[in-house]
Design a binder for these strands. Structure first.
Lengths: 205, 205
DNA sequence: ACAGAACCGATAGTCGACTATCGATTGATA
DNA sequence: TATCAATCGATAGTCGACTATCGGTTCTGT
């Protein structure tokens, strides 16, 4: 099934798209997770219909905004981690940075969550780039051999859910990064059931 | 600050409350997480205003329903676990049962989540009852010494979030129960930041 | 068994997410 | 630069969560 290459957006449409994403970040940061989409459209200087034209629903919009900052700000950390002499430390740093970013954008994450979105298909590229790091850790005997990439993705998802139980201004989540990473050590490994495919759900599913 | 003892519900009010909880379970099981509250009121045979009178918002209603089945169905498992010769196995069984129940009520959990509720203050009593189990595991050197009760609560919360990434009809979550429990072994323990107080958020926070 | 409080159903209204439509622009292309 | 499609803003409407109100009903304590 050869899917057609999607035509690129027209210039004005792309411009609006960017304005909306920028506005979304601002508005959620200032007004909290319950900010209405109309406010975002107003701030972006576009009509509400345009917002829905670019982003079919609230969850998609927020995920796009998260994905953007996620991808941009995490890239340098990943490069650094890939060169780290200790692969487990590299992995730890990437995960910590990712959670810290998520904590910073807490309002948006909450809004996405309330809209039924699964925040963690933000940064898909990001996770893929971790594969060599994991492999190296496993080859060095520092990471349990049965760990797969989807596990790391789910670990991020778990850590994000922990944010919800913490004061967003503190970094209490670090404790759970540590706890999870301890579970990745080979010396703790007991046999696990096989990994199941990662399901991405749409709102209302 | 002496808080007044809350008067018990009048007989008819209590009856309605029970009818609403029962209807909520049915409706969510049959119609999925997007079922409207009006449908629940209709099914319960009460007016929508009565529903809101008993349960100030959607999240509270669902949490009450979850809490009920949670508490009832988990009690025997907990008793059994408290007597288990291997405290870590006992802990594992309790957690597994709790996640299995949550998976069974997946629609309701999703609905609560989308309503901004934190599903895991359901079963508060349940968690408290785990304290002696943890203590025994620690005394026997089977559970890391720095584990606190809130950690277990957050672990449950993390496991629930993993359900979101899995086929609800399968039991792929068992892998992550294993992963988390491996992180509780003393032989994997590296120093952790101190635990932070557990925050219960209201919708829109 | 009766009085007053507590509770009820119905109803009307607000707000935000989302859909559909339409005439008026604006950008890609010849 | 003229054309035509892509895009736009505005607007009207649906739906569900939630609030407020009100006259009627049902408990509960005496």
């Amino acid at each position: 099934m050869p899917s057609e290459p999607p035509r690129p957006l027209r210039a004005d449409a792309a411009r609006n798209s960017a304005k909306i994403l920028r506005a979304a970040r601002q508005v959620y940061a200032e007004q909290g997770p319950d900010a209405p989409l109309e406010e975002i459209a107003r701030r972006a200087g576009v009509g509400i219909a345009t917002l829905y034209r670019r982003f079919p629903d609230k969850a998609v919009l927020i995920r796009a905004a998260l994905d953007q900052s996620f991808t941009e700000e995490l890239a340098p950390v990943i490069e650094e981690a890939l060169d780290d002499a200790d692969p487990r430390r590299g992995l730890a740093r990437v995960i910590e940075t990712a959670v810290a970013l998520t904590a910073r954008d807490h309002n948006m994450v909450t809004a996405a969550r309330n809209a039924g979105g699964f925040p963690m298909d933000a940064g898909a590229r990001f996770f893929a780039s971790l594969a060599p790091l994991i492999r190296r850790g496993q080859d060095a005997g520092l990471v349990r051999a049965d760990l797969v990439l989807d596990d790391v993705r789910r670990i991020m998802s778990m850590l994000v859910s922990v944010l919800w139980t913490l004061d967003p201004r503190e970094d209490g989540w670090r404790r759970y990064v540590g706890l999870l990473l301890d579970g990745l050590k080979p010396e703790a490994a007991s046999p696990l059931p096989p990994p199941a495919p990662l399901l991405i759900r749409r709102p209302g599913g």
